[in-house]
């Protein structure tokens, strides 16, 4: 998210965070999670699991906001999210984004 200026309550803001857990052997490589993750946390691995499917890998761990969409859309019960410690946005990150604008 881009801010025009640093919000006054920036120190109080907490961004939910999730730890994505992948049961690689359950995966059948449908890519639903990779395709529909709103934060593009996942990528498809180049490796195969035992059944010969490419399974998802966590690409951007910090980007996960624990929305559990991957968990919900997975037809194999192979991926789920554990609620992690919320992340406080870094003031410098926010400013960097502002500078871009």
């Amino acid at each position: 998210m881009n801010y025009w200026r640093v919000p006054l309550d920036i120190n109080k803001i907490e961004i939910p965070h999730g730890d994505v857990q992948i049961d690689v052997e359950q995966c059948k490589g449908c890519e639903f999670c990779v395709e529909y993750c709103p934060r593009d946390v996942l990528e498809l691995s180049t490796d195969f699991n035992r059944k010969g499917y490419h399974y998802p890998n966590v690409l951007k761990h910090n980007a996960c906001v624990n929305c559990t969409l991957c968990e919900m859309i997975c037809p194999e019960f192979a991926i789920f999210v554990v609620e992690g410690k919320p992340i406080n946005p870094d003031v410098n990150d926010v400013l960097k984004k502002e500078a871009k604008v």
Binding site: Q26, C30, P75, F77
Partner: peptide
Amino acid sequence: LPHIWCSTCGIGTVITAFIA
């Protein structure tokens, strides 16, 4: 598990939605 449904079949997703 794993269930019998094919890769990219949507039935498993509906089951997830049912449990939820």
